[in-house]
């Protein structure tokens, strides 16, 4: 087991350093990314800011509490941009060109390789932006969460990351069936926008969709609730269970599609 972990840790380091070498070519892009992420964060906060000039609460959330949700929304958006999208796009590109075979032949788990084939931490400026928003919001609230609240937050945030990873892996699996997947990742990315509000904004069928089928609301609202000290143990358990179930499902879908893959020349 220890050797297994050591091997994959070393692999991860290699993947990161190759990505970093490639990234060194894109310094201007990085600076532009920083500027852009500032503008996008402002545009995500603008409606809330205008809204809370007229109201003190919306769907049971006060301004700074809603801001905590936006903070987690921004952080996870950065995570998607830095760690999920580049790998998925690269894998789809491999599929289209028929070079995925080289990756499959390597003596390591293909699912791992596909998830880490290209990492772009410099695209994760939103992660820093989200942390900044969180600090602003906590200052506005005027109280610092207890250590247990932070622990609960880490647990549900990890669950959210696992759910996002599972969703994106399933998109890759879909690429084996239809090659035009760049559109699909784009679609998934735009659906993720629904996670920017507290879950209680959604009603009726949408509430069900976003908490169980495509649990976007869970991903950002649960960490926020945890920080605010309002997360029920049941909710935390649900998030972790959902994440485990989705990861298992995506692993099964992935293995199934990889065994059926006949390669570009086949």
């Amino acid at each position: 087991m220890r050797r297994f972990i050591q091997k994959y840790y070393a692999l991860l380091k290699v993947q990161l350093s190759t990505s970093a070498t490639q990234a060194a070519q894109y310094r201007v892009e990085f600076l532009m990314g920083v500027a852009l992420s500032a503008f996008w964060t402002l545009s995500a906060v603008a409606p809330l800011w205008i809204l809370f000039q007229q109201r003190s609460t919306v769907a049971g959330w006060r301004r700074d509490e809603a801001l905590v949700v936006v903070a987690f929304f921004t952080m996870l958006k950065g995570f998607i941009a830095a760690f999920l999208e580049p790998s998925v796009n690269n894998t789809v590109e491999h599929l289209r060109k028929g070079t995925l075979d080289f990756l499959l032949l390597k003596p390591a788990d293909a699912g791992f390789l596909v998830s880490t084939t290209r990492l772009a931490p410099w695209k994760g400026t939103d992660i820093v932006g989200g942390l900044g928003l969180l600090l602003v919001a906590l200052r506005g609230l005027g109280r610092w969460p207890a250590p247990t609240a932070w622990l609960a937050m880490l647990a549900v945030l990890a669950a959210a990351v696992a759910m996002l990873h599972a969703l994106w892996i399933m998109v890759v699996a879909l690429a084996f069936v239809t090659v035009k997947v760049d559109n699909l990742t784009y679609l998934l990315g735009s659906l993720y926008d629904a996670a920017r509000w507290p879950a209680s904004v959604w009603r009726g069928p949408m509430a069900f969709l976003f908490s169980w089928v495509l649990p976007l609301a869970v991903m950002t609202t649960d960490p926020a609730l945890a920080v605010l000290g309002r997360l029920q143990p049941v909710e935390a358990l649900r998030a972790v269970t959902l994440a485990a179930a989705m990861s298992a499902l995506s692993r099964a879908v992935w293995l199934r599609s990889i065994t059926r893959y006949t390669s570009a020349g086949g």
């Binding site: 409606p47 919306v58 629904a194 509000w197 009603r203 949408m206």
Partner: peptide
Amino acid sequence: NLPLIMMALWTTV
């Protein structure tokens, strides 16, 4: 779909 997401927020308000 952003207008629909905004619609959900504003109608709740």
